[in-house]
């Protein structure tokens, strides 16, 4: 059984977690912490002593707090879930609405822990496959011819792009939901756009739009694009005056 709980340095990839020290580097989330405790104390995952594990879990959180480590809210949610299960265990009559079919209050948690375990193992397996497959190189095939049906592509400047954007997005904008309490960072959108362009030379602008969940996101993406144009990281081209808009990576 694989148990690499201590070398999950991969979390550094998740910028939102970057500032939460230690605990995030050791455990990626409360499920991981629970799996660690189960393993450490050789508990039966199919029959978790919930009172014991809840104590251990909360003790662990307390220790983290003593080190002045800010806990991600997920850890606190799990603590309350554990206490909730513990309370329900004490009242067997409340296990289920119908007494003929008592449902173990731990059932859902056990299922989540197992799923988490399987995912970790599959992830390790995939890493091996990726490594192995990297030794086979596919025949490099000729890239498709650029441009659409011979029509000439014109590079757009800021104002032309804003105009083209408006033309394309006019209708779409109305349909997108407005979510007031979300935060979208322009820098993150810029990073994302560059990553998405990544290996490709260019991407379709409308392809980008299908990924946009709400207005705020759309605005942030648009501003990010303008910023990338200003920094000369990308150029925007359009085929004809109402044609397809392409974003090109500038090298």
């Amino acid at each position: 059984m694989k148990s690499t709980f201590s070398d999950e340095a991969g979390v550094l990839e998740e910028p939102s977690l970057r500032c939460n020290v230690q605990i995030e580097q050791v455990f990626e989330g409360p499920l991981d912490l629970l799996l660690y405790l189960i393993r450490r104390d050789e508990l039966d995952i199919y029959d978790i002593p919930i009172s014991y594990i809840a104590d251990q879990y909360i003790q662990y959180l307390e220790r983290m707090k003593a080190y002045d480590i800010r806990l991600a809210s997920e850890y606190l949610v799990m603590a309350s879930t554990l206490l909730n299960i513990k309370a329900r265990m004490l009242l067997p009559s409340s296990w289920s609405a119908s007494p003929e079919e008592p449902v173990d209050p731990r059932k859902e948690l056990t299922e989540r822990l197992l799923a988490r375990k399987y995912v970790k193992e599959l992830a390790a397996d995939l890493m091996g496959k990726l490594e192995e497959e990297g030794h086979y190189l596919p025949a490099m095939n000729v890239a498709p011819v650029q441009g659409d049906g011979g029509e000439e592509e014109v590079e757009l400047d800021w104002f032309q792009f804003i105009e083209a954007f408006y033309l394309v997005m006019r209708h779409e904008l109305e349909e997108l939901p407005f979510t007031p309490f979300e935060e979208v960072k322009i820098e993150e959108r810029m990073e994302y756009l560059l990553a998405k362009l990544g290996e490709k030379n260019r991407m379709r602008f409308d392809e980008l739009l299908i990924e946009i969940p709400n207005r705020l996101f759309l605005v942030a993406t648009f501003v990010a694009l303008l910023e990338l144009m200003r920094l000369r990281k990308v150029t925007v081209r359009q085929t004809g005056s109402f044609g397809r808009i392409w974003i090109y990576r500038k090298r």
């Binding site: 340095a9 550094l12 990839e13 998740e14 990626e28 992830a123 390790a124 995939l126 890493m127």
Partner: peptide
């Protein structure tokens, strides 16, 4: 790929 990215792929 980071461990997180591989896990997301696994899920």
């Amino acid at each position: 790929l980071s461990a997180s990215a591989l896990e997301v792929l696994a899920v």
